[in-house]
Structure formats: structure tokens, C-alpha cells
Design a protein around this nucleic acid. Sequence first.
DNA 1: ACAAAAGTGTTAGACATACACCCATGT
DNA 2: ACATGGGTGTATGTCTAACACTTTTGT
Lengths: 237, 237
Amino acid sequence: MHQHIRVTVDAVIFGYNSRDGLSVLLIKRTIPPYIFKWALPGGFAHNDEPLEDCVKRELRSETGIQINYLEQLYTFGAPERDPRGRVLSVAYFGLVRPTALSTPPKPVINSSFLNKTSDDREARWCKLNELPQLAFDHNMIIEKALVRLRNKVRYEPIGFELLDSKFPISELEKLYELLLSRPIDRRNFQKKLNSLGILIAHEEKQKAALQGRPAKLFSFNEQEYSKLRDEGVYFEI
Amino acid sequence: MHQHIRVTVDAVIFGYNSRDGLSVLLIKRTIPPYIFKWALPGGFAHNDEPLEDCVKRELRSETGIQINYLEQLYTFGAPERDPRGRVLSVAYFGLVRPTALSTPPKPVINSSFLNKTSDDREARWCKLNELPQLAFDHNMIIEKALVRLRNKVRYEPIGFELLDSKFPISELEKLYELLLSRPIDRRNFQKKLNSLGILIAHEEKQKAALQGRPAKLFSFNEQEYSKLRDEGVYFEI
DNA sequence: ACAAAAGTGTTAGACATACACCCATGT
DNA sequence: ACATGGGTGTATGTCTAACACTTTTGT
């Protein structure tokens, strides 16, 4: 009995802004199978490469994007998920700040990955509700990542990772309204965050308030959060 | 560049009773590396076998145990985790009822897995706080499973899967006190569960009350729980 | 009758929800 | 001045936490 299973990693990278909502990072495939179809960034692991390094390498070479948060999502192992044979995919789940979202992703042509098709490489952000049919089981992988995001955001402070490091509270609120798909009272939301004591208020104000009074900017106090967590205080929205 | 990565599955199976607390199912290795060391049940995946089928097959053949709940935990992929070379482990996390715990695990000698070492096979339950040093990174895998159990039990009704299908509320309470490592008020706990409406009360009483008044038996109302969840009512302890 | 655990109800405080007015800015 | 969103406080109701006595069984 000789085992022959290949291993890939794939990354579901979410970006957010209040205009477009959630977006996912996609690349266009340049080789079969599913040639010219959109897919998640990813690829085969090297023999001596930790899986997380592999994701980061593929993300850099395929999209050049700066990620802000990364965790393992799930391993997809259905025998028929890849027409080339048995290919396991260890999927990761990542978040980027809006700045990464506003600059179009650009493949980094790294000498060690140069090949005849590398000129065709193309990457882009795609709004979550405008996703096309993707290669392999990648639509299913995104679905799983979305469930993870929606659940996790309720009891761990990962929402901050989708915003600029300084943000007005209203941005955080809109993000939570989107993810939890229910309206949130602006005043109660602010009160709750203040009572948790994990926000740092800055003197700066929002630069280009499109309309209305410019908002104060806040950032996430990671140290204070770690301290509270160690004391057994739970973050919860 | 030719990829050579092998894939195993490993299972962290928890059992519980109020006398011993949590126990984990272990097998004694009969082949190198780590020969004669205790390890998690598991083994190499077959080429065309879904990962979950593989876990179930290994559990049956190595321990003969009846599992009650199973989900994927995490994929461990550090390049040096196995001295034989690059071996990925897709770890699963499972729960059994106390009845499975009280009957000692017995390897099922299945003709397709008969080999010269199968007579030496040995499996046993080991209390969580008496774990020896295990083969590979299996202690770390158990640690991760324990964190998952402790977190998940708070917002999903998986605690029931560790009890007999009919149980007195005090058993559930003791389980939660252990997992959350804090005392729980008996009366408030009962009130909360009643208000959730996910318990079915039975006429039967606890058979062998060792001391004191015999308790009513309850079971988990899975259908009612699904209904509530679909309506957006969250389970939370 | 006594020990041990089960069953039950009330009260006070904490937290979540609902809601309205004033403030700062751009047009 | 007006439109737009930001900042703040208070009242109400709901849920949680604390707590004590009675009941049923075995010895």
C-alpha cells in the first residue's frame, strides 16, 4: 500500500470597507485544470516548508498583499475535489486592512517562481456577493471561512484587523452590523466598547469627513486586551 | 520539484465521568518510531478515502470504540514532527458516552489489517491529568483539543455528547464546572436549562442513587435545539 | 433520625435596550 | 441656515447572581 496524496494550501483573505462590504482576494488560474477560472490564492507545499510559511509565500508571489491576521481554517480532503488526483487542501483564513484593499493586488515576480505563464498572472479583489463560480471547491472554502468570521467576531476581537489601525467607531459598528446582519444601536455599541476598556482614543480626528462632524479616531489596545483575557474577562459583542 | 508529503489522521477522543473527570483514548505503538510509547489512535490515510472515514476506520480497528461526536480539529504540519520524514497529521476531535468509557477499549482484529504485530495491540483510557509523554507531538494535539472543548462547550450543546443519553442535571452541571473550572450555582443552572427548553424530562429516576434522593433523568432535545438555532436563539452557558 | 443529594422561589444588582437632544463640520 | 453624521445621558426592562428551606431516598 503506497500512499500518494499531494498537499496544497489555499488562503481566503477578506478585506472590508464600508462602501463595498466584504471582498475576497482571488487569482486567475494560468494552468489547467480550471485554466482561466478564478480561484483562491495558494499552491503546493514544499517538502520542508511549514504550512503557514507556504501560505505567506504564495500570497506574496501571487498577490503581493500585506496580511494582517492569519489562522488555519480547515483541511479539505474529499477524494474527488481535484481532477488531477488526490490533493488535500489546508485552507487558511486571513484579514487585511482597507489600505491593502484599495491598492490593487500585484503578483510579485520572484525569480524562483518564474515560468512561462507568469506574465498572465492576475489577481483582484472580488465583492463577496458578486463571486463567480470558482475553481475546485473554492466556493465552499469561502463559505466555511465566512461562517468562521461571523462566529469568531462575536467573541474575539478580530474585527479590528479589518479596519485601519486608527478608525472611527462608526466604521467598527458598520462592520459588525454587516457581519451579524442586524442593526446595532450606535450609542449602546460605543458604551459597550468603552466599558471593555480596549480602545485607545486619539486626539486626531477623521480627515475627510464626507459629511457631518468629523469623528474621533480610536485604535485597538492589544496589550490591555491580553491582560483582560488572562484575567478571564471575555470579549463579546 | 517533486512533492513527497505523507498524510495521517489522529483522533483525540474524550470520555467523561464524574469520578475520573476527562479521559483520553490512547493506544500503545507496536512499531517504530516511538515503539511501545503511548499515542493517539490514528494512521495513514488511504488514497481514495475521505479523511473522516479514515478516522472512523482507525478507531474501530485500533480501539473498537463507539464514538458519538466527531469533528475536524486542526492540521499539524511542522516539518520535523515525525522522524520518518514529512508527515502531515489531520487531527480530529471526538466525544464518547460514559458507557464506552466503562468498557475497556479492544482492538478489532479486522482481516484487512492483520499483520504480525496486531497481537500486541493495546488501547486504554487515560485520565487527562495523568497523561504520560506521548509519541510525536500528540501531547500538543491533546492540548489543542482541550482548548477547543472548553471553548465550544460554552456556546454549543456538545456537553451532552459526553453524558449518557439520559442523565441527571447534576451530572451536566459537574461536567460544566470541570470544563469551565469555576463553580456553578445548581439552581441557576437548572433554571437556565429549563428556560432554553432543550431538555426532555423523563418519568424515570436515577437508578442507583449512591446517596440521597434519586434525581429525575433528562435528555437533550436535539430537534428543539435545531429549531431554536434556526430562529437565531443562541445556546450559551 | 440522620445524612446526603434533589427540588424549588424570591430578591437585588448588573447589564442590555430603547430612546432624544445637542454639537461640529461642509455646502 | 441646513443637512449630515458624531457625541453623550437617562429610564426601563430583562437576565444573572446570590441565597435557604423542604423533600426524597438509603442507612
